[in-house]
Simulated assay, not measured.
Amino acid sequence: MINSYENIILEKEDKIALITINRPQSLNALNGKTINEISSALDELASDHEVRVIILTGSGEKSFVAGADIKEFSDFNQEKAEELARNGHNNLFNKIENLSKPVIAAVNGFALGGGLELAMACHIRYASENAKLGLPEVTLGLIPGYGGTQRLPKLVGKGIANEMIFSAKMIPAQKAKEIGLVNEVYPIEELLTKTKELAKIISNNSPMAISKAIFATNLSDTDKGFETEIKYFGELFEMEDKKEGVSAFLEKRKPNF
Results as ranks from 00 to 15, higher is better:
4 S>G: 11
4 S>L: 07
6 E>F: 10
10 L>W: 06
15 K>E: 09
15 K>S: 15
16 I>N: 00
24 P>D: 14
25 Q>N: 15
27 L>R: 10
27 L>F: 11
29 A>Y: 03
30 L>Y: 04
32 G>I: 07
33 K>V: 08
33 K>P: 04
35 I>K: 06
40 S>H: 15
43 D>Q: 05
48 D>R: 05
49 H>M: 14
50 E>G: 15
51 V>R: 05
51 V>N: 00
53 V>T: 06
56 L>N: 05
60 G>V: 01
61 E>Y: 13
61 E>Q: 09
62 K>G: 06
64 F>T: 04
66 A>C: 15
70 I>L: 10
70 I>Q: 12
71 K>C: 02
74 S>F: 10
78 Q>T: 13
79 E>V: 13
81 A>N: 04
83 E>N: 12
86 R>F: 09
86 R>N: 12
87 N>L: 05
90 N>G: 13
91 N>M: 05
99 L>P: 05
99 L>M: 15
101 K>F: 09
105 A>Q: 01
107 V>A: 05
107 V>M: 09
108 N>I: 09
109 G>Y: 01
109 G>C: 02
110 F>H: 09
112 L>V: 15
113 G>D: 03
121 A>M: 04
122 C>A: 14
126 Y>E: 07
131 A>H: 08
135 L>R: 02
135 L>W: 00
137 E>H: 11
138 V>H: 01
138 V>F: 02
139 T>N: 03
140 L>C: 07
142 L>S: 06
143 I>M: 08
143 I>N: 04
144 P>E: 08
151 R>I: 14
155 L>G: 04
158 K>E: 15
161 A>D: 14
162 N>L: 07
168 A>W: 01
168 A>T: 10
169 K>P: 01
173 A>K: 02
175 K>M: 12
177 K>D: 09
179 I>Q: 04
182 V>R: 00
185 V>Y: 03
188 I>V: 10
189 E>D: 12
189 E>Q: 13
192 L>N: 05
192 L>I: 13
200 K>R: 06
205 N>W: 12
205 N>S: 05
206 S>V: 13
206 S>G: 13
207 P>W: 04
207 P>Q: 06
209 A>G: 10
210 I>C: 06
213 A>C: 03
213 A>P: 00
216 A>E: 00
219 L>D: 06
220 S>A: 10
221 D>A: 13
225 G>F: 02
226 F>G: 08
227 E>P: 00
228 T>L: 10
229 E>A: 15
232 Y>E: 12
234 G>P: 04
234 G>Q: 12
235 E>M: 14
243 K>L: 14
245 G>P: 05
246 V>C: 01
247 S>P: 03
249 F>Q: 11
250 L>R: 07
250 L>W: 05
252 K>F: 03
253 R>Q: 10
255 P>R: 04
255 P>H: 06
